[in-house]
Design a protein around this nucleic acid. Structure first.
Lengths: 211, 211
DNA sequence: TTTCCAGTTGACTGATTGGTCAACTTGTGG
DNA sequence: CCACAAGTTGACCAATCAGTCAACTGGAAA
């Protein structure tokens, strides 16, 4: 076959990039095709609609992110270090995006979900699925932390939701203020919520800095 | 004059309602006009563009919300009760919206900000202004709580930001999951973040129930 | 060699988009 | 009574929107 399906891949990558930087409503099928170097016929050969392309692009974006999360939340890493490492990863990714695009773009999943959850049920469900997956990393880290006696006994699943709510909130705040530094508050917020005192948390951070 | 400018008011009210339920991108000037019972010429008589209408609608929506917040955060109310009362107000408003529209719509300000902050600078700035105003209520409540010795000494301004990030996050989570009950987690999250133990917080809640 | 088909192309559609405009209505102040 | 201005109206615009389609391409299987 022609380009070994890399047209489809380019459409997915371009779509999530543009939607992340702008919004679903502001990005037309035409400009996605143009930036991806594809014709509209190809677009509709691979995807039945703009909405379906978006669902697929969300999944693709997740698959790109997953290896980084798997590494950060590896059982090899001490549980509380996974969380602080994640906070740094979030900052790092937003920083890179800002360097490229000139603005704090926030979380692509979250922005899409916020824009379309009341209108497009398929995208809402996909967003919910991604949210679940991301919370699983947090929940696992919390369970391990409890088992090792690092944090008080608690409901790790609902706590993971709580923490992730904060992640979404902080990222949104940073986007609204167009200020990366707001993301720096994420780590202390999260550690306070799971009941780790300032000093202990500081110790963890120092440990992480050494490694 | 004709309708004493109530056309302008209807345009503002209709706009924020539709955008809240759907999104900026999904709501056209035509449908705003239709639902408001106005012609397009009237729309552009009052507002130079869709973007300007939206900025004005945000301000209008704020003016509608403000009396409720002023009442809830009145110096007459004990500081921690203001916060728990606010959490209940949030739940109540989302519950009403869901009854009317059938879906959890989240926060109108936040949804607009999330969709447009990277694209429309005027809307971004307006969103940031609203965020500031809302945080002021939190900050004042926290300062009073510190003064009364109800919570530990802390930086109330940045703590207010932190709390409000959680509010935005929880509301977004509730919208994505289309589940009101997630908002119930907001109160304990907030009280944990300001360093109020579960029992003390429970006591505050009981006090509030009596009044 | 022929068949087959995933992928490509560009022209096309009808509906909708945000926005314009000149003519009109109507209450008010002089 | 007139003039003025705020507000209204409906026709109109070019551009863009998501989506369609028949014809074409080229490599692989038979």
């Amino acid at each position: 076959m022609k380009g070994e399906c890399d047209t489809k891949q380019r459409l997915l990558d371009t779509a999530i990039e543009l939607i992340w930087e702008q919004s679903y409503g502001a990005v037309s099928v035409d400009v996605i095709c143009e930036r991806a170097g594809a014709r509209k016929g190809s677009f509709y050969h691979f995807f039945p609609s703009k909405s379906d392309l978006t669902v697929a692009a969300i999944e693709e974006h997740w698959e790109k992110l997953r290896p980084e999360l798997d590494r950060m939340f590896s059982p090899q890493v001490p549980p509380l270090e996974r969380l602080s490492g994640y906070c740094e990863l979030v900052y790092e990714r937003q920083s890179q995006k800002k360097k490229k695009f000139g603005r704090v773009c926030g979380c692509a999943f979250t922005s899409l979900a916020s824009e379309l959850s009341t209108q497009d049920e398929k995208i809402r469900q996909k967003s919910q699925q991604i949210l679940d997956r991301r919370c699983r990393y947090f929940a696992a880290a919390l369970r391990d932390a409890v088992r090792e006696g690092l944090i008080p006994e608690q409901d790790c699943e609902s706590k993971a939701r709580e923490l992730f709510g904060c992640v979404m909130g902080v990222l949104l705040e940073a986007k609204i203020e167009n200020d990366l530094e707001i993301i720096r508050h994420l780590k202390p917020t999260i550690f306070r919520l799971i009941g780790v005192g300032e000093k202990r948390f500081a110790g963890e951070a120092a440990l992480h800095a050494k490694v």
